[in-house]
Amino acid sequence: MVTISSEPLSAPLNVGFDYTRSLGPVLGRFATGLRGHTIAGVRGSDGRVLVPPAEYDPVTAEKLTEFVDVGTEGVVQTWSWNAQPLDGQPLSHAFAWALVKLDGADTGLLHAVDAGSPDKMSTGMRVRVRWAAEPVGSIRDIECFEPLDAEPVERQPVVGDDVTMLTTPIHLRYDHTASPEESRYLRGLAEGKLLGQRCPACDKVYIPPRGSCPTDGVPTEDEVELPDHGVVTTFCVVNVPFLGQRIKPPYVAAYILLDGADIPFLHLVLGCDAAEVRMGMRVRAQWRPRDQWGTTLENIDHFEPSGEPDAPYESYAQHL
């Protein structure tokens, strides 16, 4: 057994994506209006003016088509105080969330009110739109609302082609934790060891070890140190370039079954012509220089043919 800390490894995981959506006739009209400093509502089945406009009535689901422009001032229907704004919110200093019923509208619009402090907020207070510096056709063209006694900010509307698309960047932060079993495996790699574990039910050796054997639903247990050589079970030749590719095609991505393991893992096979790689080929790990090792399988740069005779098909047929 290798003595390794049992605290699971964790690391920041930041995910991001710019969601791009088409707007359609109703939301497109609303977005185009905002960019030009007007606010469009739509008349619902019950005669109410809905702002923001709905494509279909919230109660009857009837298609709505009668647009009604409403005012850029309105009344706070309710509010809450946001003392510590989060990333992406309309203002980076403390503000109120509010439902604002614009003049001529019958429903509340969710947005921020820049009031300075909660004692400046009250239900029924009047507020007006503060437009964004660079309108693009989005709910964010309303920078926020502000009390009527605030100093007005001069902002210019933009006129142009109809707005048809909306891009919303989404960025979320996580603390990603490896399982206890994966953590042992990753710490082993940092010491140049390949640590698998055996399932107590089916006796299969997994590398990486797992919090649950997918066949038996129990955690893998007994540790097995595996050698850094094995056999190619199956492979593919990558001929297509893609974003982030680190090796010039063609090259080989292969499933490699370490000797003594029951589950292969994916790695690169280099050091020979791609056309020479075959099922059953015996390969050996090519480690990076020790001073570059970390808690990652990238410590192994790639696998190379070891020159030994190929393994017979029957020896790995159950591990494909």
Binding site: S80, W81, D87, L110, I139
Partner: peptide
């Protein structure tokens, strides 16, 4: 996702409105 998520309204702040 069109009219509300771009403001990143947090669940606690929105509950306060109710």
């Amino acid at each position: 996702p069109y009219l509300v998520t771009p403001l990143w309204p947090d669940s606690v702040g929105v509950a306060g409105l109710q």
